[in-house]
Simulated assay, not measured.
Amino acid sequence: MDTQFHSAPALASRRSLENDLDRLLDAAAEATAVFRAAVEAYLTAGSESACWSLAQRISTQMCTVDELQQRFATGTRDATFESGTRPGMIEPLNAVTGLLREMRRQITAFAVESGFSGDTREIPSYLVTDLQELSETVCAAVDELIEGCRPCMLLWGQPMCVGGDLGVSWYESQADRLSMQLIKQILADEALELKVRLHLAQVVEEVDRVADYAERVDTDLRAGRMAGLATRASRDSH
C-alpha cells in the first residue's frame, strides 16, 4: 500500500512532464513550418508585409517555446522516477531551441532584405524549384530531430529510433548534396552580377546550415542517450 501511495504522485509527475515536453516539441514543429513558409515567400518574391508577418510569427512561437522550456526545466529539477534518475533532456532541448533561434535569425534576415529590395529581389526562376527542394530537405531534417526528442523515445528508457531508413543524417547529407549543386550552378552563371551570385550562394549556405545544426544536435543527443543507457545497464547489473 505504501509503495502504491508513493507511486501515484510519481506517475502524475511523469505524465505532466511528458505532456509539457510534447507541447514544447509541437511548438518547435510549428516554428519549423513558419521557416518553410518564410523561405517560400522569399524565393517567390512574397510581399514585404508577408515576410515581416512570418518574422513576427516565429518570434511569437519562440516565446512559447521559451516559456514551455522553462516550465519543463522547473518540472524536472526535483523529479525522480522508478529508475531513480532524472530526465536528461534539458541540454538536448537547449540545443533544439538554439536551432530554432537560428531559424528566427534567418527569417528576420529574409524580412529585412524584402523590405530593402521588394519585388526586385533577384532570384532566377530556374533556381526556385531546387531551392525549394533544399528548404524541404532541411526542414525534414529538423522534423526528424524533433520527433526523435519525443518522450516515448527518450525519457522513459527506450532507445532512440527513426521511421524507416531515413533520419536526420540522411536528410542532412541530401541537403549538403543539393546545396553544393546549387552553389556551383549559381557561381557559374555569368549572366548574374557577381554580387548577386555571392548573395545567392550565401542564402543557400544559410538554409543548409540549419540541417548541419540539426545533425550536430542529433549526434550529441544519441551519444548522450547511449552513455545513459550504458550507465543504467551497469547500475542494474550490480
Rank of each mutant, 00 (worst) to 15 (best):
E67N: 02
E67V: 03
E67P: 00
L68E: 02
L68P: 04
L68M: 08
L68K: 04
L68H: 02
L68Y: 00
L68R: 01
L68S: 00
Q69F: 09
Q70T: 10
Q70Y: 02
Q70R: 09
Q70L: 08
R71A: 14
R71P: 11
R71K: 15
R71V: 15
R71L: 15
R71C: 13
F72Q: 05
A73D: 07
A73L: 06
T74L: 10
T74N: 12
G75S: 06
G75C: 12
T76W: 05
R77P: 08
R77N: 13
R77Q: 13
D78M: 03
D78P: 02
A79Q: 14
A79K: 05
T80F: 14
T80Q: 09
T80P: 02
T80D: 09
F81S: 09
F81V: 11
F81K: 04
F81L: 15
F81C: 09
E82L: 13
E82V: 07
S83A: 08
S83E: 02
S83Y: 05
G84N: 03
G84T: 03
G84I: 00
G84Y: 01
T85W: 01
R86Y: 07
P87E: 01
P87H: 03
G88Q: 10
M89C: 08
M89D: 02
M89I: 15
I90R: 05
E91Q: 14
E91V: 14
E91N: 13
E91L: 14
E91A: 15
E91K: 14
P92V: 07
L93W: 00
L93V: 00
L93I: 10
N94I: 04
N94G: 06
N94M: 10
N94V: 06
N94E: 07
A95C: 01
A95R: 12
V96W: 00
V96H: 00
V96I: 10
T97P: 06
G98S: 10
G98W: 00
G98R: 07
L99T: 05
L99W: 07
L99D: 05
L100D: 08
L100I: 02
L100N: 06
L100F: 03
R101E: 11
R101V: 05
R101K: 12
E102I: 01
E102M: 10
E102H: 12
E102P: 04
E102A: 14
M103C: 15
M103Q: 15
M103F: 00
M103E: 12
R104Y: 09
R104F: 03
R105T: 12
R105C: 07
Q106A: 03
Q106D: 13
Q106I: 03
Q106N: 12
Q106W: 08
I107K: 02
T108N: 03
A109T: 14
A109V: 12
A109R: 15
A109P: 10
